[in-house]
Simulated assay, not measured.
Amino acid sequence: MVYLLRRLAFGVLLLAGVVILNFLLIRLAPGDPAAVIAGEMGGASQEVLASIRERYGLDKPLLVQLGIYLSNVVRGDLGESYFFNRPVIDLILSRLGPTILLVMAAQLLAIVLGVFMGVLASLKPQGFLSGFVAVISTVGYAAPVFWTGMMLTILFASIFPILPVEGMSSARFRGGTFDYILNVARHLILPATTLGIIFLAQYARLARAAMIDVLGADYVRTARAKGVPESRVVFKHALRNAVLPILTVAGLQFGNLISGALLVETVFNWPGMGRLAFDSILRRDYPVLLGVLFFSAMMVVLANILTDLSYRLADPRINTEGRS
């Protein structure tokens, strides 16, 4: 419990630093939100621009704006969107579910298939399957996410039009709850695959290396000498220890998953936070962009804490209370 509280306190301090840094970087970037808002109205005079800046507090000194923003964040107020004229928290919560669905599906796909491929490759390190996994891992890791998404879009939109390549569900969908779940699942296949491929490649190589190392350990040879079935040796004795570095990398890569989701959601028009962040950048909608970055950072911090706690479940011998 003490360890958990210490980790949570550190996470809060980290989030505070992220909020301050993001605010300063975004406000110092070129571009005038007032001009963008005025442009949506077809242009405006200097008086109107000044009125817009006053309404949204853009006329105040930067440090004053930062102080106001931090005090609002502490109260749970992330501000109001310049473009939608709605609370930022409402906009983000409406997009949070699709992003979590996409990220978790991609993470699950990457870990399950990556570990499975790595385990199979480790059984015969010099065999064909091991070489195949190495090639696939290299290609998957080297291919940019947006390129993979565009190639899959071309493949399944033009050559083999069997999967939807846009949106989260069909625009004119009519059906019950179960049919809707299936419809969303079909739309999720390509985005989740695109986002998960690069991480699948990393997990496969990591699982292969970890399993080769563990399978050569003394306790594994002892288990084999006692006549323990090979499947039990591999999946109970070896994999349980080899999975620890995979859990570490999975937690550390969660931030990359969130950032990769921005590109994937843009390519497939997935209605998540990544798409909202992309549109907010184009519109200079600072409050929404800051809100998306805040929620993304919070998700990464929570993922890292859960990763640390999962160590205890994977191996009870680890004393998390004594770790720094």
Rank of each mutant, 00 (worst) to 15 (best):
V228S: 11
L200E: 06
A210F: 07
V18F: 03
L252W: 02
I305P: 07
A185N: 10
Q46K: 13
M273G: 11
A242S: 08
L108M: 15
V300P: 12
I111L: 12
F278Q: 09
L66I: 11
Y286T: 05
R221N: 12
I189N: 04
V48E: 11
N85Q: 14
D285S: 04
V288A: 06
Y82I: 03
G251R: 14
L262H: 12
G118F: 01
V267G: 00
E40A: 09
D315G: 05
S81W: 04
V64P: 00
L239S: 13
N269Y: 15
Y286V: 08
E321T: 13
F84D: 13
R172A: 09
V300F: 14
F295I: 14
D77C: 10
L96K: 14
D213V: 15
S296L: 10
L101K: 15
M168I: 09
D308G: 12
Y180I: 00
L120D: 04
R232A: 15
L309C: 09
V135D: 07
M104N: 07
R317E: 01
E321P: 05
D218P: 02
R317F: 08
E265R: 07
Y82L: 04
Q253Y: 15
G291H: 07
I92Q: 11
R284C: 01
E40L: 15
Q202T: 14
F178R: 11
G31S: 07
N319K: 04
I246R: 01
L4G: 13
A204G: 09
L4P: 00
Y219P: 15
G11D: 04
L252H: 05
S51I: 01
G196H: 01
L62K: 05
W270P: 03
I52M: 08
D285Q: 04
N319M: 07
G274M: 08
L78I: 13
P164H: 02
G175P: 10
L70W: 00
P33C: 05
I258G: 09
Q46I: 09
